[in-house]
Amino acid sequence: MPTVQLFVTCLVDSFFPQTGEAVVDIFHRLGIGVDFAPDQTCCGQPQFNAGLRKDARAIAEHTIRVFENTTGDIVTPSGSCAHMFRHNYPELFEDDSLWLPRAKALAERTYEFTEYLVDKLNVTDLGARWDGALTYHPSCHTLRGINVDRQPRALLAKVKGATLIDLPHAEECCGFGGIMSVEHPELSAEWLKRKISSLEASQAPVLVVTDAGCRMHIAGGLNRQKKSQRVMHIAEVLNGK
């Protein structure tokens, strides 16, 4: 039986374990095993984006070692972490002839979850069912970082019972930006306001994302503003019955 390695990401692991469980369920339904290397932690993106490259390298080296002891494709329910593996790890080890090939080997095995389903497994219809309206926010790193957009949309289009509504100004950043939301809360707040008004304009009760970062940011804003809309990871929607 084919098996994939799950890089679940620190945010899903700590805050949204249900996303990870949905990913496992979906793969099992497709007859694919899921392995979880227990020593995995975080990809190091917060440090990398902050400019703390020494720290980012330490975490990247740890992650590379963890997955070198495993086989098979690596799948992650995050465009952002996939982008980190694919583009930022090679950047981190650019001048390191020892680590660069190891980083690139990891990058070549790594896929974002929806990308893996559609491009690698050629599946769009997961037999999912969802009653009601959905709207999709393309996370920045999924959309522009790894150019994954048609895949999640194709998967959502096959969800029975769901009405897909276009989110106005969908491609605009929600204002998370990792540490930017802490370093520049004033900026982050403005974009969050815009994103929430776009969501309201769409009239959809559920916003679908491919990244736990955007989820915790937008859902945190909705909760603060006492709004009723929910934010869900696409895996949870695709696991709906």
Partner: peptide, 20 residues
Amino acid sequence: GWGYSKDFPKFAGKTFRERY
């Protein structure tokens, strides 16, 4: 910073690694 415009999610009682 975070609390300027949004709430922070509670850590899950059982993490994914535990549930897996």
